[in-house]
Structure formats: C-alpha cells, structure tokens
Write a protein that binds this DNA or RNA. Sequence first.
DNA 1: CGTCCACGTCTAC
DNA 2: TAGACCTGGACGG
Length: 439
Amino acid sequence: MPEGPELHLASLFVNRMCEGLVFTGAVEKSEVNKNPEVPFCCDAYIIKAQSRGKEVILTLTPFKNDGDSKRKVGKQTQHPMDVVFRFGMSGFFRFTSEDDLPKHAHLRFYTNERPRRVLSFEDTRRFGSWQANGTWQKDRGPCVMFEYESFRENVLSNLSDKAFDKPICEALLNQKYFNGIGNYLRAEILFRLQIPPFVKARTVLEGIELKNEDKKEIKKTTDTAGKKGVKVETPDLLSLCHTVPLEVVKLGENGYKPAKAEYSVLQAWMQCYCVDGMNSLSDHNGRTIWFKGDPGPMVPKGAKSRKHKWKIQKDHDYTDSKKAKKTHTESIAIEKPAKKKDNIKVKKESATSKAQGGSKKQKKDTKRVSKEPADENTKSKKQGKRSSKVPPRTGTNKIKGQHVEEVIKTKRNSVTCKESATKAKPQRRSSGTRGGRSR
DNA sequence: CGTCCACGTCTAC
DNA sequence: TAGACCTGGACGG
C-alpha cells in the first residue's frame, strides 16, 4: 500500500473521518511496538493530517473547551503536537469502533463519544515508524506530487551526485531525490517512457535537462503560431514522477468514497508492475523491478526474474467497521479476470545465467532462524491495571478466529493522564521516577 | 508442513 | 552491500 499516493490518501482519509470529531485522553501505543510513546494527553483535541512524499504528519491540537476544564491545566499538553509517520511496508490508518479495533493497531487515538471510536495506525509488519514532535525527515527531498517545481530543481541541479551513478530504476527509490516514489511507481513510470531500468540515471536525466531547454525554445517560437499542434511534446521522466502518482491519488479519491474496492482498482490501473507478460529482475538491492523489453546495460550479475501476484492485504475499506465487507470484490475482480497468470520472464535468464549460479543475492529478508515469535507471547499475565473500566474488548474480537491473541495489548501507564475526563484527579506523582510526565 | 515473496527503510561489518 | 526488522499470503511437497 504505502507509496506517495497512499500516504496522501491516508491524510485525506484522516481529515475526512476526523472532521468535526473531538478526541480525548492519551495516545495509546501497543506493547509490542518498539516505536516511542507519544506523550500527548488532552481532554479535548482535534486531529489534522498532511502528507509529503512518503511521510504523513498528524497534528493534534488541543480544543478550546472553554467554560470548565480550565483548571486541570497542570500537566495537560496545551500546545499542538505533530506526530510524523512513515508507513514501512504495511502501515495505514483506520477508523473503527473501539470494539472493532484491528489486530496490529499500534497507535490509537480515541474520540470522546459514547461508544468510543478509534483512529488507529495499523501496521502488520511493524516496519512503520512514528515520532512525536517530529518533522519532515531531513534528507528527504521535496514531494514529487505536491512540491513539483522544487522536486525537479532538486534533481536537475544535483546531477553530479553519485546517487545518479546508479541505474535509473535504483535512483528512483532514493528518497533524497524522489520522495514518494516506491517500487510499483518506478516500474509504472519507466514503463510509460519505455526507459530500460538499468540505464545509468545520469544519462537519462541529462537528456531531460537538455530536452527541457528545447521545450522552452519550442514553446517560445511556436506559441504564437499554432498552439494546438505543439502540445504533443511527450512528457519527460520527471514530469511523470509527478503525474503518475497523481493518477493513483485520483483513483483513490474516487475509489474509497463509496467504499469501493480500491483493491482491484489499483491492480487494474497497473500497466507493468506484476503484470502478466512483463519482465522482472532483482536490482542491486534485491528489489524486484518490473519492465518491458530491454533491461539496459547495468543489470546486476546473476539477477533473477521474479514472479508474484501482488495480493494487497485485503481491501482496506478503511472507513469503518464492517460495511463494504466483501461483496464488491467479486464484481470488480471480474474486470481483469485472470490478468496475472504465469509469467514468462526474461527468457535469456533461464538458459544461461541460471547455470552460472552466481546468485549471491538469493534471498534477503529471510533470515529467520525459527526465532520464537517474540511478539505477543510475552505472557505478562499480571496485567495490573485495576482501573475500573476495562472495556469489553478481546472477547468480542471476531476477526477471523485464529488470531485473537496478538491483538490488544495496551500499555496504559505510559502517559500518566488517564481519567482526566472523569474526575480531574490531581495526579498522583507516585514514585518519583516517571510520574511527572509534564508535556 | 516449509519456502518464497511483499507497496521500506536502517545500521553495521 | 549484506542483513535486520516483521507478519502473513501463495504455493509446493
């Protein structure tokens, strides 16, 4: 899910779902997650989101509750707090009822409603991260979608950077220059221009620079003449780094409003990535690049073709509890019926390079030495949280049946600001250590 | 069952 | 330039 467009759609989603809602209490983190606590606690606050490239910032703003609540200022966070998110491979936001809290909801924001609802950051693989009081990550370039001019400038004025010594398909994943581009977008973008993925990046981009000047010339001279015929100029690589992601944003905007199956919509949109009939190779970082035709000169030795059907994790109907269920999947799944079947990858591979067996890359990622799933199993049964109201949750978890465990695990203590709404207890600075938690 | 694969960073030898 | 970090779906035996 998460490349630039998805991050932006996530911010739209948050803004739409949270509009007019008031949140309250502390921000809760699941115990298994190793990201830092978010030390924010407030009787009433609102949430706004924005995105830039492959990051999202949630701004938590205390809400004027005038009248009462004036006194419990002491430790309350009175200033807005920004929390930056990076989504890793599987992060996204979801808004549900408290009872439907999804497994892997690792950071949670609660509304002040009767049956509470929850905005959660869900992240199955936990490669995602967040940082309280964070800012856009230094070293990430301008957003390819919403800071187009500076994005262009940043690339074209730094072509001497060794980052551009690499094949174009690898340079495109460098977030210092292409903030928002990910593995499927690089494939789709290169495919549109039929640029071989393993051509040196600088070579491709220098061409653009020149071409750009040409364009200006052309425009200048022909503008007065026939504005019509001239427009046909093919877009360059950098402009596609802008427009292609925006196409996906558009898909999503239409897609999930009516809780559509944004799942197959994206698949149907793909022209190259994971598409049957396309070629694929692993790049120097072990990532699969999909392309058509000539791979170009800088192919890694022993690169292997891959095949895989992109099976997105369910369809995030995002919105709310159950609603879109599945029903829709069928209707749309039909569109591109058996689109991906068997792939006939790079023929040359099979015969020759296979034999040379130098595949050092073989695998990545998989190191697993049957390390116990250190996840949920921290059987810290004790619990110790007699705090009166422990909403009936786990029991009602009917997700699928098998995974009921990993789910909920809160970590209440973190920010000492619990029952604020109820009693305004001047908090107990118990045992010195971390009691204070001001801010 | 086990292996391979996945929309991304990070750090460490 | 390898791993490490994770869970889980697809597919093979």
